[in-house]
């Protein structure tokens, strides 16, 4: 390894933080990040990239937990891309994240809102 830790470190610190937008998924932000909720609570992630929930359905809000995914009713032998049932599509439903598992108790939610 070349013996020049200092310039490399400086370059990293000065590098603009990249945010990647996906209209159908979370916001990807290079970490570490702190997210401030509207109640003033600060939640930090040290991960190399944080996926920030934009669908507001995550049960680990503000972090994505893939709750934005499309939900389909699968018949035994139906093709996997079968038409989603009305109201089960994560992009069109208005339900909050707490109730879309059949047995969700909600008590484990870390929803910061």
């Amino acid at each position: 390894m070349p013996n020049a830790p200092e310039p490399a470190q400086t370059a990293r610190e000065q590098r603009p933080r990249r945010v990647t937008i996906d209209p159908e998924g979370p916001l990807l932000v290079e970490g570490p990040v702190e997210v401030v909720g509207d109640d003033g609570r600060v939640i930090a992630s040290r991960r190399f990239t944080a996926a920030i929930c934009t669908c507001r359905r995550s049960r680990t809000y503000p972090w994505c937990d893939t709750s934005h995914r499309r939900r389909v009713r699968r018949d035994e032998n139906a093709p996997p891309d079968a038409e989603p049932e009305t109201g089960t599509d994560a992009r069109t439903t208005t339900r909050t994240g707490k109730d879309h598992d059949q047995d969700s108790e909600g008590e484990e939610s870390t929803d910061a809102r």
Binding site: T66, R69, R70, R71, V72, R73, R74, P80, D81, P84, E85, T88, A90, Q102
Partner: peptide, 12 residues
């Protein structure tokens, strides 16, 4: 991948 990116409704 698309097949894996959908979640079943209810109990599987």
């Amino acid at each position: 991948l698309a097949e894996l990116l959908v979640e079943p409704v209810g109990y599987s």
